[in-house]
């Protein structure tokens, strides 16, 4: 049984890394870093899965196992950090474009 989630993670990360290594356009670089970050987020959140678990919310919860909430906190932090990095990279590419007239 092939584990599809880890294959997707590796696929996303390799696409992102190829984007950063071989593309010269600044916006493509920034978006490739975004893709790598999404791949790592997917890897982290898939670590918390418990078989047959439900969402980790306490109010009106049926009496079943819950999915582990720790990686959900980790990836929330990572999503915000990735947002800051992407915003900074894109604004820097705007400023470079203004001075150089080509991307």
């Amino acid at each position: 049984m092939i584990n599809f989630i880890f294959l997707t993670v590796i696929f996303l990360i390799i696409i992102g890394l190829f984007g950063t290594m071989f593309k010269k356009n600044l916006i493509k670089l920034a978006m490739s870093i975004n893709i790598i970050s999404n791949g790592v987020n997917l890897f982290l959140i898939s670590l918390g899965y418990r078989q047959g678990g439900i969402a980790p919310i306490f109010t009106n919860a049926p009496n079943l196992k819950m999915v582990s909430p720790t990686p959900q906190a980790l990836i929330l932090t990572n999503i915000v950090i990735n947002l800051a990095v992407t915003a900074f990279l894109l604004s820097l590419s705007i400023l470079i474009y203004k001075k150089e007239k080509k991307l």
């Binding site: 990360i13 890394l17 950063t20 600044l26 670089l29 920034a30 870093i33 790598i36 970050s37 790592v40 890897f43 982290l44 670590l47 990572n78 950090i81 990095v85 900074f88 990279l89 820097l92 590419s93 400023l95 470079i96 001075k99």
Partner: peptide, 24 residues
Amino acid sequence: CFKSAFHYLSLFAVGSLFLLFGIG
């Protein structure tokens, strides 16, 4: 300066994502 900051930030974004992968 803008070019150097762009190169620096893109390199370190990839570096920190490697760090997060190792921690994961």
